Computed example of a mutant assay.
Amino acid sequence: MSFTIAVAGKGGTGKTTISSLIVGHLLRKGKTPVFAVDADANVNLNEQLGVKVDSTIGGMREELKKKIGANEVPAGMSKDMYMEYLLQDTLVESSGFDLLVMGRPEGPGCYCAANNMLKRYIDILAKNYPYVVIDNEAGMEHLSRRTTQKIDLLLLVSEPNPIGIMTAARIKDLAKEMEVSVKETGLIINRVNGQAPESLIEEAKNYGLEVLGTIPADDMLIDYVIKHTPLVELPEDSPVVRALDTILGKFGI
């Protein structure tokens, strides 16, 4: 069984950064291969992982709808077989991890059969990996569409301000409303200068959120981003890497 880590939070809090750091942590620990899923419509996890993306699930779904609508599925292939072929073609394979990019949300004309097949194949695919890391979009659309039904660890990311904390709490409530199975949930406060204010820690507790730790503001990380250097290449002595290692260590990861 794979262990699924989902990262979520308000837009701009650094979800993708945290997701890429988690993948880097798993690579260093030899917990491979890792299945990374970019579920944010604003696709950029691949840049922080240092891989190129040529196709997405959103584009694949639209192609499937057109082909089936025009009765142009390749001869000798069932719809399921064609879906599996397209899905494998969308998967980006790299050293130690594979990446699947969800891409744009579904447009007009919902094709439920495609969505159902898609979810089934993603579930089958995920079982081949010891760890699955999902970078969710701010609105948690893929939770509401039930693309992600089982989460072992939901990491909510907030900047060090009350609005981010409140949004994290709302996402936690949303997951519960959508009846997504979440075993453990925790809050990470990102881009902290020094110590996080006790008032923020207390506010998180009032929302029923456990603060797992903080990620410091780090000039090295900013330099990597500016130079388009993959964040998975950050050294082990980087402050952000050490901070995240400590947080994941609490779960034996």
Rank of each mutant, 00 (worst) to 15 (best):
Met77Ser: 06
Val51His: 04
Ile124Phe: 09
Pro105Cys: 06
Cys110Tyr: 15
Leu64Met: 14
Ile122Asn: 08
Val133Tyr: 00
Lys52Asp: 06
Thr147Ser: 15
Ile134Phe: 06
Tyr82Gly: 02
Lys52Cys: 00
Phe97Arg: 03
Ala70Tyr: 10
Thr56Val: 04
Asp80Arg: 08
Glu84Ala: 15
Ser144Asn: 09
Leu154Tyr: 01
Asp123Ala: 14
Leu154Met: 07
Lys67Ile: 09
Gln48Thr: 11
Val101Ile: 09
Met102Glu: 00
Gly109Trp: 10
Ser144Met: 08
Met102Phe: 08
Val73Gly: 10
Lys127Cys: 02
Tyr129Ala: 02
Glu106Trp: 00
Asn161Ile: 01
Leu153Met: 14
Glu106Lys: 00
Gly50Lys: 05
Gly50Trp: 02
Gly59Trp: 07
Glu159Pro: 02
Leu87Gln: 13
Gln149Leu: 04
Glu84Gly: 05
Lys119Asp: 10
Tyr111Arg: 01
Glu62Gly: 02
Ser144Val: 07
Ser55Trp: 05
Arg120Leu: 12
Val101His: 06
Gln149Gly: 03
Ala126Leu: 13
Lys79Asn: 09
Lys66Cys: 05
Pro105Gln: 06
Thr148Lys: 05
Gln149His: 05
Asp54Pro: 03
Arg145Glu: 08
Asp152Gln: 13
Gly109Cys: 12
Asp123Phe: 14
Ser144Gly: 07
Thr90Phe: 06
Ile68Gln: 10
Thr147Met: 12
Lys65Cys: 02
Ala138Trp: 00
Leu125Ser: 08
Leu49Pro: 00
Asn136Cys: 11
Pro162Lys: 06
Val53Arg: 03
Leu86Ile: 05
Tyr131Met: 12
Pro74Asp: 02
Leu125Cys: 10
Ser78Lys: 12
Arg146Met: 05
Gly96Arg: 11
Tyr129Phe: 09
Leu154Val: 01
Lys52Gly: 00
Asn115Trp: 01
Pro130Phe: 12
Ser94Asn: 15
Lys65Tyr: 11
Tyr82Glu: 04
Arg61Leu: 14
Ile68Pro: 01
Lys67Leu: 10
Tyr121Gln: 15
Gly59Phe: 04
Leu118Cys: 12
Val53Phe: 03
Ile57Thr: 13
Asn71Glu: 15
Pro130Gly: 10
Phe97Gln: 04
Glu141Cys: 09
Lys127Met: 12
Glu159Ala: 12
Gly107Trp: 11
Tyr85Glu: 08
Val101Cys: 06
His142Pro: 04
Tyr121Asn: 14
Pro105Asp: 08
